[in-house]
């Protein structure tokens, strides 16, 4: 009898906790506390689209990505990925290192899934869990700001002329970072720097964008250096190459297709 009472109480506590977590995490609840958003000034959306085109010079295709860990100027580690981008905006990241070989991540506007080949599990992750792994799939996979963020505010940079500071806010909770500050050159839309923030406003990491290289007549930024993040004092350089515009089967960008 006592055991039944204990069981009943524990189950009740569990259900109430789950209900509370559901309520506080629900977008409707969160939006009640969110600041009002503004619409983007004309032309600024086009500037952001130009910046996107410099990061991914095609609508659909694949790109090879290397993440190099730097201690000062010394490379202390690295990992390699193949990123497939669909015309619908979804990305599929395939790990190429021996430690994670066969692991794949699917990033779409509906969320993130990770396929673990050693156990054949497809695991659904929350945006914050994306930051818990060794590699942040969000930085690698979701390369177009226009897909995930809306422009809240644009202001001229105070320290440099001809540069706009974009304040971007996530369109949906599935975006990796709730808020991004982005420095873009006027005209060409070349990204210079970005700051990525948590929901609490805490700065998580910053990115510096190298000058673009010309690839098949298009300007492409192939190197981005991240500072901050989980390992303080360590920088991560993301080097992209082997850009290949190609048509990819739709099933590769589905949860069921992750194991293929």
């Amino acid at each position: 009898m006592i055991n039944h009472v204990i069981t009943h109480r524990v189950v009740c506590i569990f259900l109430w906790t789950a209900l509370w977590m559901f309520i506080v995490s629900h977008p409707a609840c969160r939006s009640a506390f969110a600041e009002e958003t503004a619409t983007a000034p004309p032309g600024m959306a086009a500037l952001l689209a130009r910046a996107d085109a410099m990061r991914v010079p095609f609508r659909e295709g694949r790109v090879h990505v290397e993440l190099l860990t730097l201690d000062g100027d010394r490379v202390t580690g690295g990992s390699a990925f193949e990123v497939l981008v669909s015309k619908g905006g979804a990305s599929r990241v395939e790990m190429l290192d021996s430690r994670f070989r066969g692991q794949r991540a699917l990033l779409s506007d509906r969320g993130l899934w990770l396929y673990v080949p050693t156990s054949r599990r497809v695991i659904r992750l929350t945006p914050l869990q994306r930051l818990m792994g060794n590699a942040n799939y969000g930085d690698i996979g979701r390369m177009r700001w226009s897909d995930d963020y809306r422009i809240v505010q644009t202001t001229p940079a105070t320290d440099r002329s001809g540069v706009w500071v974009f304040c971007l806010e996530a369109k949906a909770p599935t975006a990796v970072y709730p808020k991004v500050l982005l420095w873009l050159e006027d005209g060409a839309g070349r990204p210079l720097r970005a700051d990525f923030f948590m929901a609490s406003g805490k700065l998580l990491k910053s990115a510096q964008y190298d000058p673009p290289e010309t690839l098949n007549g298009r300007e492409v930024i192939d190197t981005i250096t991240f500072t901050g993040g989980l390992s303080t004092g360590v920088r991560t350089r993301m080097v992209m190459g082997a850009f290949q515009e190609t048509t990819l089967p739709e099933h590769l960008f589905t949860v069921g297709g992750l194991s293929r």
């Binding site: 929350t126 945006p127 709730p178």
Partner: peptide, 10 residues
Amino acid sequence: TCVQGRSLEM
């Protein structure tokens, strides 16, 4: 499975 917000998976 479903995800609510940025933090909760059920």
